[in-house]
Design a protein around this nucleic acid. Structure first.
Length: 259
DNA sequence: ATGTCTACTGATAGTAGA
């Protein structure tokens, strides 16, 4: 079984591109982020043609998350409780024998912006919610755009990035707190020395210069982690395809052997 | 260190957000 996460940066603008990727990689369950459309505007028909059904938590203009799957998922929770004002950023479903949570974590804008402490508070709320709702001895994954580079190796800046947005001790402490709820980072566990990134700014030729971050992550409990046979950051799908513009994030997927 | 992309607007170019 192949599970994936992808911040698509606007599903209306990305629909043809997303379909190209689904046909190429044939994932079974996909967490999508940054739909930038309302729940009612989700293009279910187009995904149905490819054999997918979707659970959707959208909103106008910004944010928005969804889960695509082969068999219908059962929604457990849409929206992080008490953090709804920060946008549609969490969708929790059960599907394919997994608790599958897709997350679009706040960006924070800059370390001195009002959004930054709110970002930290959002992560505190997330860790509290995970601890209360997901038992660490069950098969569960938390996938999405975390907007945190967990360690120096996850940034093109390396340790020189320490203290910048995505690289602060405060953000990394929140990430560690999430792991402490009973999760591991599939990519880092599978590739301890890996230096792949998942996001590159559209500006300044960042992709071609290698100026990226690994902020799109798949976390899972041990019950899932021990099934992981491969983890891929699908860098080719950060490039233009058939003249179609890519998201600024690459898709990330993991292959699991049968339970 | 900023050369892009997306979505919105009493829209039809300009702004905000990432």
């Amino acid at each position: 079984m192949r599970i994936a996460t992808w911040n698509v940066n606007g599903l209306r603008a990305r629909l043809d591109y997303v379909c190209l990727w689904l046909e190429a990689r044939q994932p079974d369950v996909v967490g999508l982020q940054e739909l930038k459309l309302e729940t009612d505007a989700f293009p279910h028909e187009r995904f149905a043609e490819l054999g997918y059904v979707a659970a959707v938590h959208g909103q106008k203009s910004w944010n928005g998350v969804a889960v695509l799957s082969r068999e219908a998922a059962e929604v457990q929770q849409a929206g992080l409780p008490r953090q709804e004002a920060f946008g549609a950023r969490l969708l929790d479903v059960t599907v394919a024998g997994l608790r599958f949570v897709t997350l679009y974590c706040p960006n924070g804008k800059s370390v001195d912006h009002d959004d930054f402490p709110q970002k930290l508070a959002w992560f505190d709320a997330l860790a509290g919610w995970v601890a209360a709702n997901i038992k660490p001895d069950t098969p569960a994954v938390l996938v999405g755009d975390y907007n945190i580079a967990p360690a120096a190796a996850d940034s093109w800046l390396g340790a020189k990035g320490d203290g910048e947005l995505f690289h602060t001790e405060a953000e990394r402490a929140r990430f560690e707190a999430l792991l402490a709820c009973g999760f591991v980072d599939f990519y880092r566990t599978h590739l301890p020395e890996g230096r792949d990134f998942s996001w590159w700014d559209y500006r300044g030729g960042a992709f071609h210069r290698g100026h990226g971050l690994r902020i799109d992550l798949m976390l899972g409990t041990e019950a899932v982690a021990r099934r992981v046979t491969d983890v891929v950051i699908d860098r080719d799908f950060r490039k233009k395809q058939d003249g179609l513009t890519a998201s600024d994030h690459a898709p990330v997927y993991a292959d699991l052997r049968d339970a």
